[in-house]
């Protein structure tokens, strides 16, 4: 197996595909954290919500593409609701209330999802785009996974331009560098934070919707992915777009090859990577603030 180049190629692509989902999830979290020292543990639940809403839209309309478009918007709307009712109040409450409340929110959202969609894994029955297979050496490989990789790279490129070429992006970078000074220069950091929060929710929803045709949708899927997402944030370095991207690659590779090569220790591999990075670079690989 190990001498077969197609094994490495297939696992490499699987790593990339997982990395791109982790990137879509972690990028919102990390920038929100960098901007406001706020961590939303329920972020993974928004991923599950994106998958479930995407499933319902795809089933009702027969169009998975419509689901890709509308599910992120719906999740953004839920995010706005959460922001207005809870998160805005938590902003100045300090880390412990934030962790407790958003941790509790995980269970509230999971039960709400079970109530609405049940506990079964739901797979779309209609047509899925890119449902064919390509061949890597002798191995058939689902083309849809390449599509997930493309979505992740496109989002990274889009966010890169947003962050580096627009005024909103400059406000975000300034806010991450030094929120007080940004505010004293007339930047409404609170509003910037709100917009970044919404964008993060939308990307979590997009990740869920895009993952759904490949991995089906299930109420618990948000909890499963939360821990790797948080590890990506720490490994990549807080507050940084490229940090989230690189951290996702590291953890995507670690998890995928860990499972393929050492199935018994797959869970430990990720923590080993985390510890290794923390020992060598406690601030993460590419933090926004050095």
């Amino acid at each position: 197996m190990l001498t077969d180049p197609s094994f490495w190629l297939v696992q490499g692509l699987n790593s990339l595909q997982l990395a791109m989902l982790l990137f879509l999830l972690s990028v919102g979290l990390t920038v929100i954290f960098g901007l406001m020292n706020f961590v939303n543990l329920a972020h993974g639940s928004l991923y599950a919500l994106g998958a479930l809403i995407g499933y319902s839209i795809a089933e009702a309309s027969g169009s998975v593409f419509l689901a890709f478009l509308l599910a992120p918007l719906a999740v953004t709307a839920v995010g706005a609701l959460l922001y207005i009712t809870l998160i805005e109040r938590l902003r100045s409450a300090g880390p412990l209330p934030q962790v407790l409340v958003t941790f509790g929110l995980i269970f509230v959202l999971m039960d709400a999802q079970r109530y609405l969609w049940g506990s079964d894994a739901l797979g779309v029955t209609g047509d899925v785009p890119f449902s064919g297979t390509i061949h890597i050496g002798s191995e058939p490989y689902p083309a849809y996974r390449l599509f997930i990789i493309a979505v992740g790279i496109a989002v990274f490129a889009g966010l890169y331009l947003l962050l580096n070429r627009t005024r909103l992006g400059a406000e975000v970078r300034a806010g991450v560098d030094d929120a007080e000074t940004a505010a004293a220069l007339g930047v409404n950091v609170e509003r910037t934070f709100f917009l970044v929060f919404l964008l993060g929710c939308g990307l979590a929803g997009l990740a869920g919707a895009v993952a759904m045709p490949a991995f089906s949708a299930e109420a618990g899927m948000g909890v499963e992915i939360l821990v790797p997402t948080l590890v990506v944030v720490v490994v990549g370095g807080l507050g940084s777009l490229s940090g989230a991207f690189v951290g996702s690659l590291v953890i995507g590779v670690t998890l995928t090859f860990g499972t393929a090569l050492f199935p018994d220790f797959a869970g430990i591999a990720m923590y080993a990577a985390l510890v290794a990075v923390l020992l060598l670079r406690p601030q993460g690989l590419l933090p926004a603030r050095s």
């Binding site: 400059a170 560098d177 505010a183 220069l185």
Partner: peptide
């Protein structure tokens, strides 16, 4: 709030300058 005061016409030079390194 600070940003409304900036827009009302108070310019502030913070101690240690506060230049944004990422910009």
């Amino acid at each position: 709030k600070p940003h409304t005061l900036a827009l009302a016409g108070i310019g502030y030079l913070p101690e240690h300058r506060g230049v944004f390194p990422s910009l």
